[in-house]
Every structure is written in structure tokens, then in C-alpha cells.
């Protein structure tokens, strides 16, 4: 019963978050289409890392993805 209650309460929140995530993903895909946009994201990530907002592991993973994205938009 508790599980059903929890699910019921979580559902709208989860739904909202999924919709927001989908919008964010679309926005990311849209904005990371140019070299400049990827570069801006790289600098933002570096700043978050320098300020301790991003753990090293997450920083390395994000930078690796951004490197790939940069190669893609440059057509390498």
C-alpha cells in the first residue's frame, strides 16, 4: 500500500521532471550544434570544476563527452 501511495505522489513530479529533462535534452542538442556553443559549455564546465561544484570524476566524463561533441561539430 505504501508503495502505491508513494508512486501516486511521485508520478506527477516524475512526469514533470521527465518532460523538463526532455526539453533540456532537446535544448542541449540544439545549442551544442556549433563549435562556439560547445566551447562555451567547456568553459562553463571548467568553471564549475574550479569552484568545487563538480567532482573530478564527473568533470572528466563531461569533458570527454564535450571533446567528442566538438570533434563532431567540427567534422573531424
Amino acid at each position: 500500500m505504501a508503495l502505491i501511495v508513494d508512486d501516486l505522489l511521485r508520478l506527477p513530479v516524475d512526469l514533470g521532471m521527465k518532460v523538463l529533462q526532455a526539453i533540456a535534452d532537446d535544448a542541449d542538442a540544439m545549442t551544442l550544434k556549433t563549435e562556439r556553443a560547445v566551447r562555451e559549455q567547456v568553459l562553463k564546465t571548467q568553471m564549475q570544476f574550479e569552484r568545487g561544484d563538480l567532482p573530478e570524476e564527473e568533470y572528466r566524463a563531461t569533458m570527454s563527452q564535450l571533446r567528442k561533441r566538438l570533434d563532431e561539430v567540427k567534422g573531424v
Partner: peptide
């Protein structure tokens, strides 16, 4: 109602 409930919780 579910969306309203979700909004209230948020």
C-alpha cells in the same frame, strides 16, 4: 488532478 497534485507537492 494528478498534475494539480504534483504542482502542489512541488
Amino acid at each position: 488532478q494528478r498534475l494539480t497534485l504534483g504542482t502542489k507537492v512541488a
